[in-house]
Amino acid sequence: MFDPLGMLEIFRTGQLESSYARLNPLVKFILFITFIIIPLISTSFLLQLFSLVAQIPLILMSRSGRRVVRSLKASTFFILILIVLNYITTNNIVFSLSMVIRLLTMIIASAIFMNGSNPSEIGDVLSKLRVPTSITFSFIVALRFIPVLADDFMNIIASQASRGHEVERSGFIRRAKSLLPLLIPLIVIAIRRAQQLAEALESRCFGSGKRTSYITYEMGLIDFLALAYATAIMITGSLLATLPPEFLLLPFR
């Protein structure tokens, strides 16, 4: 139930082939932002429910079903805490449920976006949004080097294990000490890689002037349809938000 690594799943980008994946990345980003912003407009239960349900076509389009389920499962702990805390403070079950559904909507939006975009695209979107090159570049380089450093770490653990080293299980200080033979080589290697990378970047004229882009994206019919959908969601959501929250409870009276 409490699965921190599973929650990190949300950040892992996918390579899945789907019609959603073929959308212009800026459009994907707009859809993502739409479903983050809309639930925040008001606390109306109706609005939250609507936002959740409106993503179903996107889940199908991006074939993210499995990933969504995984992300939700990983978040069960936090969801329960959220419900309980909200109920304790407000004594309003409907409100508590709204808050939970809002969280679910955002988790699903992230899962869809991450599943249908590759990191390079995300980097391109960030550039387009005028995020400074240093930040977008750091993002891509970090993703590029995570597997490399992970491999280094595996090799370090194997090397040290072959010298009889075992990670201590008990005692905080003992445990920390036993991690030093693993962490120090990793840090040294990471710094060395960074230095060589910097050299290589200099030698390829990085940072010497205005950069152009090799990859371009086009807008097709499906992109405009997706934008239209996002707009429709925004409008409907805003309308629902203006309805009084008690509106939904009418059937229950």
Binding site: S120, V141, R144, A200
Partner: peptide, 11 residues
Amino acid sequence: FQNPDNQIVTL
């Protein structure tokens, strides 16, 4: 440079 892993920056 010698180590291609430390030159490749994109995905």
